[in-house]
Design a protein around this nucleic acid. Structure first.
Lengths: 240, 240
DNA sequence: CGGGTCAAGTGGTCTTACCACTTGACCACC
DNA sequence: GGTGGTCAAGTGGTAAGACCACTTGACCCG
């Protein structure tokens, strides 16, 4: 009996999602005014405070601008939104957006090695020991989803070791986007299970405090999954 | 007569800021429950919907978790927050946080070259032409603040050229954090005004479509300001 | 001790009313 | 012709009070 947590979404949550989707889909053009709060409340059959909660949250993400006395208008999310919007963009309507996913992989390949280098310079043997522990678990794991989860933990440790709040926040945003898609990705990445060696080498570079080597090792950690995922996306698009 | 826009902050905004600050300052420990919405409304002398708007927004940033029927509790923002929180962290209480600023500079140095490389590979001569236009303006500018503003525009173009949504969103978040501090930074960076050459070389690399050269050129663009800022922060801390 | 019950407290929602602000039309006045 | 004042309509901002839905923990029972 496989039970899944029951989800109860508040009305404000639902409105929030609806407005977000409409803006991201372009159904609401940039500069266009939204219906008034009263009108939205009436049309949606909910109270005005509920509408307000949703709109205020949308405003905080930068997708709309609400002006006292004036209309609430749609903004260009490509200009105004921050990285926190990524999870919403990556998986839309329950489906992965291949273009965005490619962009995520690119960014990962670009930023990851830098994090590894900083971690090597600052983490010390304590970090290396923790990494080794995860490596040991990786080695003993055959299940794909769990394997990917451990890989994420591994990077979590590296980000901690890099001791940079900006990288930490970036990682959090990326992880939040990545995690919901993990089961789907794990299916594609099944082949990678077992390639523990790059992770071991990276941990060794961290232990040695060797930033340059860690940087190169990180690239070797990231490249296989990047290539597998990109190939999978290409195949997906040919299907469509 | 130097007029500045009048700012009217809603009560929900003020509560939002207060709670955010209390959490970031650690006045509210992780795991600790917040007062109930009714209690907050009473203590602050405002209505409950106003409190709710604020708390829902705080929850969206990941700093607290609100559970129906249970208490609203503080979360560890280092684990839960995304990059959108950066502006709030960088400047706290009207003052720049040196540690965070260092982290921003680090990240910029790490990510910037990658963006430049992608832009060179994908931007084409059209992008190069736009960059050259900004370079010409840079050359003609002696005022420090305006110079920094143009530098930001230059990077904005590069990010567009890189054609990566993730980098775009990262840049937006960083820019939002950077911009309020720009006047203060410009004062420190006054010496850099006039070093247009690196920007010109980077534009040339973009025109040539040479990613590797662009990467190196970007480093040369970023290094001078990075060093100047780091030195300034060190001096700041000695004062204190 | 396991399990059911219940009351208290909390967040979720609705309704209604009023305040503050923006907008645009209209109109005097120079 | 343009300047500024006035006003009404519409919008977002706020308040108050009442219920509903849920969690928690104390309590009681078998």
């Amino acid at each position: 009996m496989a039970l899944r947590p029951v989800t109860r979404r508040s009305v404000a949550d639902q409105v929030f999602d609806q407005v977000l989707d409409d803006v991201l889909d372009g159904e609401l053009a940039v500069g266009e005014p939204l219906p008034s709060e009263r009108r939205l409340a009436e049309v949606l059959g909910i109270s005005r405070p509920a509408v307000r909660e949703a709109l205020q949250r949308v405003a905080q993400t930068g997708l709309v601008e609400v002006r006292h006395g004036g209309a609430t208008t749609v903004r260009d999310f490509r200009r105004a939104a921050g990285l926190d919007l990524l999870p919403r963009l990556l998986v839309r309507g329950g489906r992965l957006d291949a273009a965005i996913a490619r962009s995520v992989i690119e960014a990962r390949a670009e930023v990851g090695p830098g994090i590894a280098a900083k971690a090597a310079e600052r983490g010390g043997p304590g970090l290396a020991a923790e990494l080794d522990r995860v490596v040991a678990e990786l080695e003993a794991t055959t299940e794909s989803i769990r394997w990917q989860g451990l890989a994420l933990d591994y990077w979590d440790l590296l980000v901690d070791g890099a001791d940079s709040l900006v990288f930490r926040l970036m990682f959090n945003s990326l992880r939040t986007a990545y995690e919901p898609a993990l089961p789907a990705l794990a299916a594609v990445l099944g082949a990678e299970v077992g390639q523990v060696e790059p992770y071991r080498l990276l941990a060794a570079a961290v232990r040695a405090g060797d930033g340059a080597t860690a940087r190169a090792a990180a690239t070797r950690v990231l490249t296989p999954t990047a290539e597998a995922l990109l190939a999978a996306f290409d195949a997906m698009e040919e299907d469509a």
